[in-house]
Nucleic acid binder design. Structure first.
Lengths: 232, 232
DNA sequence: TTGTCGGCCGATCGCCGACAA
DNA sequence: TTGTCGGCGATCGGCCGACAA
């Protein structure tokens, strides 16, 4: 995934930071077990200390293909004083949920995020593009045309392309995304209160990311008994 | 999940059988590692034999809430000669994909499965009910009415209720499921070639299950690089 | 007996300017 | 500047019998 888009989705303003490879961090087995929904069986490691000083061996930025939820896989090596050669069976792997921020050099880029209003998320409508976003992120419209309109091509965190019809119309005039927008909303299952992030890199390529409101997006659970019957 | 419906979904005619609790089976660590997509790290168990004789400690029938894929979680205890008290950290857990068949006593029930035709899976239409299914599984219609029609209530493997309009019409007459059917097809993401299973237990309660064609339904994968861009 | 098709009708989608906050 | 609304036209979903395999 694109690191910049990943950061924009994770929330650039958030306090947490992704550790740099080679840095030293503490791993808390008990905390990991408590947060993990697929309860790792740590009983065999009962002798473990509460905190284990580890070296960050690898960092992978990931995105869930269904929910676009971003997370980071951070591989920890508990053998602080050994050389760099890593034996996989000695590594512990942990996943942390967003928001987190990657600490890399970072090329310059522009991003703009907006919390979806009812009209934005509503199936009947398009997306009201705030003036700043249209002016600074999207390619300029030809205002000689009537109405000014263009097709915007973007890619999401998986590299999947999306296209939106960007039009400047109405009285008073305003920027709107129409054709293609509802398909995006439905596909991503966006609701009022979720955020959408538009990004432009130095090459002018456009990207789109999403950030969801608190809805849980945990791993798949298997049902072993009858569950709350919702009427079909 | 209902054991009978689970069996019907897994394929009652398949050769495999779910072992009974207490029976003894061989566990093949290498085969497990090969089939598992989330590669278990067995390097710490390098000293294990190729096959380990185990006692079946527990069997759980499960169904994926997203895909309705059925599988069985079989807990194995490698300590054949110890008493029944089980220490969790000594157990190995394995999942097997369908088709499998549960070997329980089994109350009598009737089931009927049909491979979906293009017309069945097509959004535009309903479901052509084969004569045998309508006669032997569904409640009898009132053939004095014109047309004979009723609402069928069923539950899926999760216990979730669905309802279908069952009508006997057309020239020549045939049984069809109309209202409610396409919602079921879309929700379950059924396609031509998938199978649907209708079941009736002795109480007359109806159940519905599905069995998918070869499409992979493995666990969720996280994308770490740009993937095949399909046009939005 | 049942799979597919075209017809047809109603519901929904989605684009629009009008307003007002 | 931008969120929401009512309008409306086009598209699609979905029920139907006809027909043939």
């Amino acid at each position: 995934v694109d690191p910049q888009l990943w950061r924009a989705c994770a929330g650039a303003a958030a306090g947490g930071r992704i550790p740099v490879i080679g840095s030293r961090v503490f791993y808390f087995p008990r905390g990991h077990a408590e947060q993990s929904s697929s309860l790792p069986d740590l009983s065999a490691f009962a002798s473990l200390r509460a905190a284990v000083l580890c070296r960050v061996a690898a960092v992978r930025l990931l995105a869930n293909p269904d929910t676009d939820e971003v997370c980071a896989s951070i591989t920890l090596d508990p053998r602080l004083h050994t050389p760099v050669a890593l034996a996989p069976e000695k590594l512990l792997s942990a996943s942390f949920a967003s928001p987190l921020e990657i600490a890399d050099g970072g090329e310059q880029f522009l991003s703009f995020s907006k919390i979806l209003t009812a009209s934005d998320a509503n199936n009947g409508g398009g997306f009201s593009v705030p003036r700043f976003c249209a002016d600074s992120i999207f390619p300029p419209l030809n205002f000689d045309a009537e109405p000014p309109v263009q097709i915007i091509s973007v890619r999401d965190v998986h590299g999947k392309p999306w296209s939106f019809r960007h039009i400047y119309r109405g009285t008073p005039r305003r920027h709107l995304l129409t054709t293609g927008w509802s398909k995006f909303v439905n596909s991503k299952k966006l609701v009022t209160g979720d955020s959408v992030v538009f990004m432009k890199n130095l090459s002018g390529q456009l990207f789109v990311g999403i950030r969801r409101t608190s809805r849980s997006c945990g791993p798949v659970h298997y049902s072993s008994s009858y569950e709350s019957p919702s009427v079909a």
